[in-house]
Amino acid sequence: MSEYSGNEAVIMKNVCKDFKVLNRHEGLKGSIKDLFSRDYKTVSAVRDVTLTVNRGEIIGYLGPNGAGKSTTIKMMTGVLEPTSGELLVNGKVPYKNRTENCENIGVVFGQRSQLWWSLPLIESFKLLRDLYMVPEKDYEGMIELYRSLVDIEPILHKPVREMSLGQRTLSDILAAFLHNPAIVFLDEPTIGLDVSMKAKIRELILGLNKEKNTTVILTTHDMGDVDALCRRIVIIDKGTKIYDNDIEHLKNYFGSYRTLKLKRSDDTWEEYLIDEKTTDVMDVIMEKQKSMKIKDVKIDEISTEEVIKKIYEGSAK
């Protein structure tokens, strides 16, 4: 492809990925049967996706479960070959240059540690330094940067297997950035973490992106992650790209939507999503007042969560 100018971290052009799924049989006999079976069905995980990610961007790659997010990342990391279409990562075809591609990327799959299970984190770091052939000076610099962004002392000498999920995820993210890669892929990194760990991790990612201009491709179901990190979001559903633009643009698009919150007599809140173009907020409040006692009223802008939900619903129609 000729359009690679050096500024694009990822270029995808009409990329598709189909899986041939074998209808498997049980047991040894079944396994032998499977070897010769032609009993396949095809699953289209990614359909005709075209996408360019520029250097230094943090993009949120969103979509419901099974949309094809992880499959896209697996293609970008070079472990899966696209069925058709063109894919360039750092200007190279990842599947054809897996080891070379791996020098310039970092990958985190949430809840799936890539570190040496029984080694203290610092020893894993040193092994990674050697694997990626990171010069000593750069390595020291990176560790210093880590220290300035997050408190790494409590985990540095702890074996990964003794860490909490949050500490493990934090470690994996630190490990993914250690060789200063051009792109870092984060596939649901904050899944299962508590609020304070999520905040810590967002701050870290933002800091590293700012400091090293690392491109970050993030998939998540947590709109807090999106709000904190991403200016641009790409949404796919059933393998097809259905949205690609700035998050602000998206919010403007749904600008006439309001979240109406009503406080009941028992101090709990009820929420309604209202499109002001079609429905008057006051009418709704009056209507509700007939059937319940309202202690308080709040009107908010639409949240990212609801925007995304709207888009999913729209595509489902």
Binding site: K74, T77, G78, V79, R98, T99, E100, C102, E103, I105, V107, F109, R112, S113, Q114, L131, Y132
Partner: peptide, 13 residues
């Protein structure tokens, strides 16, 4: 389990 994928993200054999 799918854990095998982690061995494919390093620039080594």
């Amino acid at each position: 389990s799918g854990d095998f994928i982690k061995y494919c993200f390093r620039p080594v054999n």
